[in-house]
Design a protein around this nucleic acid. Structure first.
Lengths: 206, 206
DNA sequence: TAGCTTAGTTATATGGTGTAACTATCGTTA
DNA sequence: TAACGATAGTTACACCATATAACTAAGCTA
């Protein structure tokens, strides 16, 4: 399970590039691996370039050859998380099926991904840093994640946006509180609540 | 509006206490004021005791007379935010009315509070810091905020928890994405979406 | 193989948390 | 009211973090 996400996260190193570029990409990937680990253990505020450098056996300033700044690294992580989620959502969609099936699949895949990658989900949809603005690619990817939902609700154009938003907010409402740990100690099954919430968005859908 | 929340946030200084304690409480309150400002401007990770001290015209170590650590200050802020929200929710409930009225009022007051205090809402319900565990009082306050919702759904005991959770997740789903800025640039009115979501939880309710 | 590019180093500026030891001031009480 | 004790605030310091500058060493390429 862990290995699976690890593999999915791994950067593809372009074999056509020269050895320098290959090496560079490999180090960048390795830095990101360590960064994810830190993010999971200490949150975004605990992410430390110095600590990563130490773990990799180099000095901190060396990392600035690979990432312009701590923020830059964080941006890469955010983009990589968006890409990963977008790929997964899109992968469930290509299989076709009825809108009901597709929306259920989308909901499931997002929740599974969020549960397997709490810190990643929270990085995308949790508390944003006030000053920080995501790069354009992030917005694009967010749209790509949303698009299959809109597509599934497209039978009634007047209602498409509203129903898509409702799907999004209901799905996010459960997942967000679940991965943030706000349900711990409460006597119920989040999976069931989630299923019922997804179902609630499907009325009158084929 | 801002003044209103400012006032609500202000610590009541016990007039019975001696002058030393009075002074102490006043400084503590002043520190928290500055802390809120920083939180709004730079997020939780940008909260700096040193900066607060500078703004207050004292040196950073002096603040440790008032707060054991940065985390301790943050905990105080979290508790104060919970208290504020709990008071507001409870205030809407005492007025009585039908369950529908009460739930609508609760939803409205939470959203208004969240919009007026984005950083506060996100501090309570946004990304948690992995290591951090909230004090017992926080859990109590969270329960107190949830209780009026459960009360409004108490007519059918079998469904109380499920419907209360649904209310919570739907309300949070919209508010969370709204205050995090994920709706910016989208052609729709969050208030309307929110109203429709609250309404959706009220079926068969008197 | 010469030379350029690049990775990584050390040194340093800056800013943050937190502790220790000292000083001055304020309140309380004999 | 004078003296004592508690407390607020200070400086000095240890440690960790980001980030830049200047230098060195290694590797790729022509």
């Amino acid at each position: 399970m862990v290995n699976e996400t690890r593999t999915a996260r791994q950067q593809l190193v372009n074999p056509l590039a020269g050895p320098r570029e290959r090496y560079r990409q490999q180090i960048r990937a390795e830095v990101q691996e360590h960064a994810w680990k830190q993010l999971a253990e200490a949150g975004a505020s605990g992410l430390s370039l110095k600590a990563i450098a130490k773990q990799m056996g180099i000095t901190a300033p060396a990392l600035y050859r690979y990432f312009a700044s701590r923020d830059d690294l964080l941006t890469e992580l955010i983009l990589s998380a968006y890409r990963d989620l977008a790929h997964r959502v899109e992968a469930t969609t290509v299989t076709g099926g009825t809108p009901r099936d597709r929306l259920t699949a989308i909901g499931t895949v997002i929740r599974e991904w969020a549960r397997d990658n709490r810190h990643r989900y929270l990085l995308l949809y949790g508390t944003p840093v006030p000053g920080y603005t995501a790069p354009a690619e992030a917005t694009d990817l967010a749209r790509r994640i949303f698009a299959p939902v809109q597509d599934a609700f497209s039978h009634d154009p007047d209602e498409t946006l509203h129903r898509s938003l409702t799907f999004w907010t209901r799905v996010h409402g459960v997942i967000s509180l679940e991965v943030a740990g706000h349900f711990t100690g409460m006597p119920f099954d989040p999976a069931q609540l989630f299923a019922s919430e997804v179902l609630s968005t499907l009325t009158d859908l084929p």
